[in-house]
């Protein structure tokens, strides 16, 4: 990099003459080497999936989970420096708990993303800290029904509240991605880590904005995308970690939970099958090429 030796990358919070903050850009580099993480916002829930690279054969399979629950209805996964991700989760949990203490209600997903986003951004401002070496994906479900105040007694009129507008749409699935700069946007599909480019192009094919993909389809797609994105670094072993948050009428009842083993394994089986099929197609194409010669 041309900037080496100019001295503008030695301290956090120092701009280069052309207005860049190199420390933040190096933090992004740390993310680019992490295992791929994917989030999909489906019409009736959110799926979070992670390609967890196995760093040692001595570690217990399916232990050491990397997708964390922040509050009952919110899950977080990050790619990059694992300890930074752990600290991010600690902060996110503190924010969610603080919200509950004041408002006696679950924190809306966008408010949680906003608060942790500010925290991450603050780490680009001071020379005593370094930026977060992670990009985090935050997924959750804001209740579509009325939420009582935590600890409230009684339930109001038996005939229901007066003047309530029926049929209004409230709450639903939400997905945000927070970068080392503290920047965050809401997404239909989010991907980060080593295989993000492949994952993003796969996510684009799903036409998530149409809002037709169901949570069950989403789980299968998420698993497939992690497997496709892993193709390029085939040498390393990995585990697929997957969690979801459904609507109140869905399988998790608005909670963030691990995808059950049977459903995950079925999704993995289909993912592997689709990869094998693609390989066959490629071979056939090659044959076709030869015949044309």
């Amino acid at each position: 990099m041309t900037s080496i030796g100019t001295g503008y990358d030695l301290s956090n919070s120092v701009f280069s003459p052309d207005g860049r903050n190199f420390q933040v850009e190096y933090a992004v580099k740390a993310v680019e080497n992490g295992g791929t993480a994917v989030g999909i916002r489906c019409k009736d829930g959110v799926v979070i999936a992670l390609e967890k690279l196995v760093t040692s054969k001595l570690m217990k399979p399916n232990a050491n989970k990397r997708i964390a629950t922040v509050d009952r209805h919110i899950g977080v996964v990050s790619s990059g420096l694992v300890p930074d991700g752990r600290h991010f989760v600690v902060r996110a949990r503190a924010e969610a708990a603080e919200w509950r203490k004041i408002y006696k209600a679950p924190i809306p997903v966008h408010s949680l993303a906003d608060r942790v986003g500010q925290y991450v951004q603050a780490h680009t401002l001071y020379s005593s800290v370094r930026p977060f070496g992670i990009t985090a994906i935050v997924g959750g479900w804001d209740s579509e029904t009325e939420v009582p105040v935590d600890g409230q007694v009684g339930s109001g009129p038996s005939t229901g509240a007066g003047g309530k507008k029926e049929g209004g749409k409230h709450g639903g699935p939400f997905l945000y991605m927070i970068e080392p700069s503290g920047l965050f946007w809401g997404y239909y599909g989010a991907a980060t880590g080593k295989g993000r480019q492949t994952a993003k192009s796969e996510l684009e094919k799903l036409d998530l904005a149409a809002g037709t993909l169901t949570l069950e389809q989403g789980v299968k797609e998420a698993a497939r995308i992690i497997y496709v994105a892993h193709e390029d670094s085939k040498d390393k072993e990995f585990e697929l970690e997957m969690t979801w948050i459904s609507s109140l009428s869905g399988p998790t009842k608005g909670r963030h939970e691990e995808v059950p083993k049977e459903i995950r394994e079925e999704a993995e089986r289909l993912a592997k099958k689709s990869l094998d099929d693609d390989d066959d197609d490629e071979e056939e194409e090659k044959k076709d090429d030869k015949m044309e010669e």
Binding site: G156, A161, G162, K164, K165
Partner: peptide, 11 residues
């Protein structure tokens, strides 16, 4: 208070 989502409520 009143809002469209919850209607009128008394606490």
């Amino acid at each position: 208070g009143y809002d469209h989502r919850h209607g009128g409520q008394v606490y």
